[in-house]
Nucleic acid binder design. Structure first.
Length: 476
RNA sequence: GGCGGCAUGGCCGAGUGGUUAGGCAGCGGUCUGCAAAACCGUUUACUCCAGUUCAAAUCUGGAUGCCGCCUCCA
């Protein structure tokens, strides 16, 4: 099945034709580790994780590179704040970056986001960045001001092609600040000269540090080559960050297009407003994990298409948790039945099931192939579960069939990186004894004692359900 | 000021011009010792105004509203 994906650069869906199949080279803009990661980060990285997983599922080999901006103004500000004054700020910056990177990875692991192949750090690539800037300078595209080296957007005729902006239309009104000496208000800094005490590295222009945009150009091309397939990030990076990256890279290499497909994920909002630091309406992942299972968060995020905004609220999250639990329950029910199930099905019967589930799987593939429509894909899986439930209700109980249903549902949710904790937990023996006592009581029609036990266990967070296969327990 | 996106039933949320999306919540029923779960049924939506079409939630134009980017931002 051909995969189509929405390319920000063309503003429409395009069929995916990798530059060098079966390999797909994907660069995703990473974090600046100066504080705890929040739900917005989770969404971005879950989005690209699902894209990667699906491409792999479709038979491609994905090489995924994601940077870490481990030096920038915000990290320096934090370092100064924490040290009081400027005593070995460079070391302090490193510590801050490491601390929050670790926290980020911890959160990503909980959300079942697969690791990228490479996580290049800005501070490990200073010499390469300097070479790039020298190259741009040699071409007359970069120029020096008292506080740094700047990129001249006027010398790149395609400037604005990604975000659909024209330089001459942008001049009035906006928030672009006039900067002393810049040739164009959109010119951006490639190299920042260090102020007294700031962390810095030597360069032909004196001590300083790289500007933000240059690192992505340098590191992406270093690890993926001068042209590659996919470049992703949050919608807020489209302009100016990605626009600037294009300007730098295509100016220097002369190869166009630098990136074939530009993908941007939508925001997480709160009360319809973008979740962001400046509005103070963000929730850190650490805090949300206290309230919700990370898998519920992942499930919830994937139940909206990645380019649409997704609103966060506890109520909506709880709805997501209910839906997630429904699937979990389905798998647990099957596990329970499998334990008790009598046995083998004729091959014919299994083949029937396989055939009957096929349309749902095709629907799943169709949704995912259509710009990674995870919401549609999840819906297809719910329809499949519904169908399976109905079949079970009608008395289907052969092991092979149950196993196939279970495996299929788990596998396809697995393609979305959604997993369900296994139900292999053993119950405390005292409680287990109570359950068997109750089963005896029920057999003797001693419903008073039976209900007593059920209530008692309910108080301990154990829910009992009586089924044709016996009594099933679960945690509330 | 410039540019862009979105408007779907109580809520969330997919959507190919004509055929049930799905989830959550509600109501009725089946099943059950009673429950729970599950299943069945159910309230039939598409901001407004024009237009194209035999036919539009789906295409075109306009209006209104909300949001985003243009400053760090996933």
């Amino acid at each position: 099945m051909t995969i189509s994906l929405y390319n920000t650069a063309s503003r429409r869906k395009e069929d995916l034709f990798p530059i060098d199949p079966p390999e797909i080279k994907m660069y995703v803009c990473g974090i600046t580790p100066y504080d705890e990661s929040h739900l917005g980060h989770a969404r971005a990285y879950i989005t690209f994780d699902v894209i990667k997983r699906y491409l792999v599922h479709a038979g491609y080999k994905v090489r995924h590179v994601q940077n870490i901006t481990d030096i920038d103004d915000k990290i320096i500000a934090k370092a100064m704040q924490e040290t009081g004054e400027r005593t070995d700020l460079k070391q302090k910056c490193r510590e801050i970056a490491e601390k929050y990177s670790a926290s980020f990875f911890d959160a990503m692991d909980k959300l079942n986001v697969l690791r990228a192949d490479v996580y290049p750090k800005a501070t490990d690539h200073i010499p390469e960045m300097i070479d790039w800037i020298k190259g741009l300078e040699a071409k007359g595209i970069a120029y020096e001001l008292p506080d740094g080296i700047y990129f001249s957007v006027g010398s790149f005729s395609d400037y604005g092609k990604l975000s659909g902006r024209r330089l001459d239309e942008q001049e009035e009104g906006g928030r672009v600040k006039e900067h002393k000496g810049k040739k164009n208000p959109f010119d951006f800094v490639l190299w920042k000269k260090a102020k007294e005490g700031e962390p810095s590295w030597p360069s032909p222009w004196g001590e300083g540090r790289p500007g933000w945009h240059i690192e992505c150009s340098v590191m992406s091309t270093k690890y993926l080559g001068q042209q590659f397939d996919i470049h992703g990030g949050g919608l807020d990076l489209e302009f100016p960050h990605h626009e600037n990256e294009i300007a730098q890279t295509e100016s220097l290499t002369g190869k166009r297009p630098w990136v074939k497909y530009w993908l941007h994920n939508g925001f997480v909002t709160v009360n319809k407003e973008k979740m962001s630091k400046s509005l103070g309406n963000f929730f850190t992942l650490k805090d949300i994990f206290e309230k919700f299972d990370p898998m519920v968060i992942r499930f919830y995020i994937l139940s909206t298409h990645y380019r649409s905004p997704i609103n966060y609220s506890d109520a909506e999250m709880r709805g997501g948790a209910e839906a997630y639990d429904r699937v979990k329950q389905f798998l647990a029910d099957l596990d329970f039945m499998l334990e008790k199930s009598p046995g083998s099905a004729p091959m014919v019967e299994l083949n029937d099931i396989i055939e009957e589930l096929q349309p749902y799987l095709l629907k799943f593939e169709a949704a995912m192939s259509d710009d990674f429509n995870s919401a549609g894909a999840i819906a297809a899986l719910f329809e499949m579960i519904k169908y399976c439930r109905k079949t079970l209700d009608e008395g289907e109980d052969e092991k092979e069939c149950l196993q196939y249903m279970r495996d299929t549902v788990a596998t396809y949710f697995g393609h979305l990186g959604i997993t369900f904790a296994s139900a292999g937990e053993e119950l405390d023996s005292a409680l287990a004894a109570l359950i068997s006592e109750r089963e005896t009581a029920r057999a003797n029609k001693d419903f008073k004692r039976s209900d007593e036990i059920r209530d008692q266990l309910k108080g301990k967070g154990i829910i009992l359900e009586d089924t044709p296969y016996g009594t099933k327990w679960s945690r509330s």
